[in-house]
Amino acid sequence: MTFKAIINGKTLKGETTTEAVDAATAEKVFKQYFNDNGLDGEWTYDDATKTFTVTE
């Protein structure tokens, strides 16, 4: 399945996608990506659209 992340950061904005077997796996991938890029913020997840949003 394809999962999307919308990034609303102070220094980084945009979208990225990942292929994962479930939402928990996708969340781990996205959180690692955000940690690697120095992002920290509020997380939400919309199961209907398979979209994570992080707002810094």
Rank of each mutant, 00 (worst) to 15 (best):
T16A: 14
V29A: 09
V54Y: 14
G14L: 15
A23D: 04
G9P: 03
L12K: 08
K10N: 10
I7R: 02
T2Y: 08
E19F: 15
A23C: 11
K10Y: 11
Q32V: 09
F34A: 14
L39G: 05
A20G: 03
T2M: 13
V29I: 14
N35V: 13
N37Y: 14
T49N: 07
G14S: 11
N8V: 14
K13M: 11
Y45T: 01
A20S: 05
T55A: 05
N8Y: 13
E56W: 10
I7F: 15
K10D: 06
E19R: 14
G14A: 12
T16D: 02
T18E: 02
T16C: 15
A5G: 03
L39Q: 05
W43F: 08
T16R: 14
K10M: 11
T49A: 06
K50F: 09
A20C: 07
A48R: 10
T18N: 02
V29L: 11
T51Y: 01
E42S: 10
T44P: 01
Q32G: 05
T55H: 08
G38E: 05
K50V: 02
V29N: 07
G9S: 11
K50W: 06
F52G: 00
V54R: 04
N37S: 11
N8L: 14
M1I: 14
Q32K: 13
N8W: 13
F34E: 00
E19M: 13
L12G: 09
E56D: 07
E15C: 15
K10R: 12
G41H: 09
T2P: 04
F34P: 01
A24S: 08
T55L: 07
K28S: 09
T51Q: 02
A48I: 10
F30C: 01
G41S: 06
L39I: 14
K50S: 04
V54M: 10
A48T: 11
E15Y: 14
T25E: 12
T49K: 06
E19Y: 14
W43E: 00
D47I: 08
L12E: 09
Y33I: 08
A26R: 02
T55G: 04
N37G: 06
N8T: 08
T49R: 06
I7S: 04
K4V: 09
T2V: 13
D47C: 06
E19Q: 14
G14Q: 10
E56N: 06
A48D: 11
T51W: 02
E56Q: 12
G14H: 14
N35R: 15
Y45L: 02
L39H: 04
K28Y: 07
K4C: 11
A23G: 03
K10A: 11
E56Y: 12
T2Q: 10
A23Q: 08
F30I: 02
E19N: 12
A20K: 02
A20Y: 03
T16Q: 11
F3R: 03
T2C: 14
G14I: 15
K28L: 11
Y45P: 01
A48W: 05
D22R: 01
E42G: 06
D36I: 10
I6V: 11
V21T: 11
V21K: 12
D40P: 05
V54E: 01
T18A: 07
F3I: 02
K28D: 04
L12H: 12
V21N: 09
E42V: 14
D47R: 06
N8M: 13
Q32W: 06
Y45S: 01
K50I: 02
G38C: 10
T55I: 10
F34K: 01
M1S: 09
T17S: 10
N37I: 15
Y45G: 01
T16I: 15
G38V: 06
Y33M: 12
A23T: 05
V29K: 10
I7G: 04
E42R: 07
W43I: 07
E15V: 13
G9F: 15
W43V: 07
T53Y: 13
T51S: 04
Y45M: 01
A26W: 03
A23Y: 09
A5V: 14
M1R: 08
A5I: 14
K28E: 07
A5Q: 01
